[in-house]
Design a protein around this nucleic acid. Structure first.
Length: 197
DNA sequence: AACCCTAGCAACCGCCAACGC
DNA sequence: TGCGTTGGCGGTTGCTAGGGT
């Protein structure tokens, strides 16, 4: 499966060799499906730090950044944006596959409410983590205070800056990606987050 | 049976930082 | 300090399988 190798199979270049080892051949790689818990971890980290797949993958033993990235792009993004897709493709209802069949997202620990409550004219930016966060936060009971989009964006931007700053500090201090997640704002870890991953 | 469409995912590409000389 | 090499990363591509028509 997948595209043809860039080099002769019998004479692979080092970079391809390394990539294949890291993403596919390495021992202890999980090749099975992702669990609901892993889904939640990926989702929350994506909201918090964006598409830093290597960091996200480091929190999921046995998963590679490529795995996580592929899984997000092929499944999770649709899962978490399912309702929005349904709204925009109402003329073609058979395309809707995510959720429980009633327009709910089916995320463990997240209230089962319609995702699309953000104004329709903001849909064009709905695919980024901020938009995802907005959708998700609105599904939580505590989102009442965030009904003003302007203050929400400001607040979320502050949180993201804070998290990125903490990550930079952590990386600078340890020269590794084993950041201290306890320092990241819990604002984006509602319900199931208990301070460890 | 043949065609079309979509999902899944391994691999490619390009950029950038670290490293050694 | 400058340059070439290497490794790491995120985004993207394109092959394959499977389902629908």
């Amino acid at each position: 499966m997948g595209r043809a190798p860039c080099c002769d199979k019998a004479n692979r270049c080092g970079k391809s060799c390394r990539l294949r080892w890291l993403n596919y051949l390495r021992p202890n790689i999980k090749h099975g499906g992702f669990s609901e818990e892993e889904d939640n971890i990926i989702f929350r980290l994506y909201i918090s730090i964006g598409s830093r797949w290597s960091i996200i993958a480091s929190q999921l033993p046995g998963r590679t950044d490529n795995d996580v990235k592929n899984y997000w792009n092929t499944k999770l993004k649709k899962k978490f944006l399912g309702k929005q897709r349904k709204e925009t493709s109402a003329a073609d209802p058979k395309r809707e596959t995510a959720g429980d069949g009633h327009g709910n997202l089916g995320i463990t620990g997240w209230p089962q409410q319609p995702a699309l409550t953000y104004p329709i004219d903001h849909q064009e930016i709905y695919d980024d983590p901020f938009s995802l966060a907005w959708s998700s936060l609105q599904q939580n009971s505590g989102a009442q205070a965030l009904l003003c989009p302007t203050s929400f964006w400001t607040e979320l931007d502050d949180i993201l800056r804070f998290n990125l700053m903490k990550m930079d500090e952590s990386n600078a201090a340890t020269k590794s990606e084993n950041m201290n997640w306890n320092e990241v704002s819990p604002f984006l870890y509602p319900n199931t987050y208990d301070g460890r991953l």
